[in-house]
Every structure is written in structure tokens, then in C-alpha cells.
Simulated scan of single mutants.
Amino acid sequence: MTAELTLNNGVTLPAIGLGVYQSPPQETAAAVETALKVGYRHIDTAAAYGNERQVGEGIRASGLDRSEVFVETKVWISDYGYDATLHAFEKSTRKLGFDTVDLLILHQPAPDRFERTVAAYRALEQLLADGRARAIGVSNFMVGHLTDLLARVEVVPAVNQIECHPYFSQPEVRAANAEHGILTQAWSPIGGITFYPGWGEDRRNVLQDPVIAQIAHAYGKTPAQVLLRWHIQQGRSAIPKSVHAHRIAENFDVFDFDLTDQQLAAIDDLDTGRRHGPDPDAPMPEGIRDRTIPED
């Protein structure tokens, strides 16, 4: 059993996907192939991750037809701007080995260069119109970023991928997404502590929270499975990352139990309002912001 979510343009997206942020390129293809054999049909990558090529290799090695796998990737800030973003798409599809992607999103709002962000999104609109992307969206856009973007573009994003886990669930952003018919997709959905070195080094591991542990014990599930179930039951997409076969399988085994309303509320109450990753409104280090995405 799997769960699918319908985007605002009618395209369906499998609720659980494999994330490959920080997956070493030499391990990514095997992780993707393993995930697809387990039952995943959704892979999330990005130009900035440096492993789009290996995602494509893993999909082809699985033996599945391209149409059976929902592939999403992201354009990095250094490739923002109308023409630059169109070129970035060609770079990504060349590496993936596919002519189209299912979801193409802008990786950051880049408020310090928002004119280029808007131009980049207009390029996404053109790729959508041309049938090269089945859906388009954004990532890490806060309420103000969304408001500014929507005032200047034609197509409402289908997805906003944001940091979202019990310790930082961003209810205001999720409410704004819902108001506009935008699906919330959670990165760091289980509150991992390996994301974004240099930001929030003193953060707590959600997997060790006693509330989560108690609920997991009641169902004979792991804390990670409980957290992913929390996302699914509240209508979000989640993209847990792992390169370990047993964890990849564990993260997909979340469709045979239901959390109660009281348990969902108890998890909601864990929110600290404190990020584990970078603030989208804060200046990004130039070395990260302006990284060059290779052609090949």
C-alpha cells in the first residue's frame, strides 16, 4: 500500500519519496535502485547535490519504465534568471538522462536577488507550458516570499518544500501553502541531525524524543516510522534520506498503521519554533550561494 497526493494541477505525487541530499554520488545509484525495489516511486534530487546523474543511473538499473517514477529536481541560485534557468534545466535533464522531470522547483527564495528569482520562476512556467516539467514549485519559501512571488507570476506553485519536523513544523508557512493550494513537502522530515553543517549544531534529535519513543513502542514501529506517518496523515509529502538498505525499507513501511488524533496532537505539541537548518531570510555564504553547477 502506498499513498498518493494530488497537486493543484492534477498531477499525482507519491507521498513518500527518497531524498538524496548529502548522499555521496558513489552511493546514490545503489540507494535509488534499492528504494525502487522496495516500492518507492518518487525520488527527490537537486542540481546542487551533485548526484543527478547517479539518480538517473539508479532508475535505469531498477528496470522500471521512466513513467513509473516521479522525479523531482531543483535549480540552484547561481542559475537563476530566465535564460540561465532554462539552461540549468537542460543541464539537469542531461545528467538525469531524461527529457522531462515530474517536478522542477527553485531551491531557495534568494531574497537578496529576488528579481532573478522571479525570472527563474517564469522560466519554470515556460517549461511547464512546453511539457518539459509536469509540475513546478519552490523550496524554502516563507510566507512573505510566497506573497511576493504570487503577485508577479501566473502559475501557483504546486509544491513548497520546507524544513518540517516535530521540533520545527512551520504552521504559518503550511497554512499559507494550504490557502493557495500548494502542497507542503517536508525536507528533514524526521528531524535528522546531519543536515546543513554549520547551522544549529546544538540542535536536538527528534528521534530521541520520549513522546515519539512511547508512540513507537505502542505500535511496534521505529521513531522514524512514527514521524513519517505523522506527515502522511496530515497530508504532507516527505522525502527521508538514507543510503542504507534497511533504513530505506524501514522508511517506506509506514502504510499499515494509523496514529490517533491524540497522538498527532501530541507530536504537534513538540514544536519549538527553532530551525535546524538555515533561515531563508538570512544572507547565505557566498561560497554556497554562488557555487557553479557543472555542465556535466
Rank of each mutant, 00 (worst) to 15 (best):
L18E: 09
F252D: 07
H244A: 15
V101F: 02
Q170T: 06
A48R: 00
R289P: 11
E115I: 01
R53C: 13
G235Q: 10
L127R: 00
A224N: 05
T73I: 05
V71Y: 00
D102A: 00
D256I: 13
G198C: 09
H87C: 06
L104P: 04
L183M: 08
A31R: 00
R132V: 06
A46W: 01
Q22K: 14
R236E: 12
E295V: 08
E4I: 06
A48L: 12
D271V: 01
A135Y: 00
E52G: 06
P283C: 15
A224H: 01
V153W: 04
G17P: 11
S237V: 01
L5H: 11
S237W: 03
E115N: 08
V153A: 13
T2R: 07
A48H: 03
Y21W: 15
L36F: 06
N160F: 01
L7C: 08
F252S: 11
T93R: 04
V32G: 02
A123P: 11
R291Q: 14
H246F: 13
G220V: 03
S67K: 05
T2C: 06
G181A: 10
P240I: 14
P240Y: 10
T292G: 14
V156I: 15
G50M: 10
E90V: 03
Q54V: 11
V20W: 01
T292K: 15
D269A: 15
A216K: 01
P24H: 07
R66P: 03
E250P: 04
P197W: 01
G192N: 05
D44S: 07
V226M: 06
L103W: 02
N205Y: 03
K221I: 06
R66Y: 06
P197N: 02
F195I: 14
V153D: 09
E179L: 05
V155P: 05
I182C: 03
D279R: 07
L146H: 05
R134H: 12
T272Y: 00
R66N: 12
P14E: 05
T73P: 12
D79N: 12
I267G: 04
S169H: 08
G277Y: 14
E154P: 08
Q214P: 08
L13E: 06
G181T: 05
P223K: 01
Q185T: 04
R113L: 12
G181W: 00
I293Y: 07
G273K: 02
R122N: 13
T147L: 11
A218H: 12
D65N: 14
A123F: 02
G10K: 02
D202N: 11
F114K: 07
A129T: 15
V38N: 06
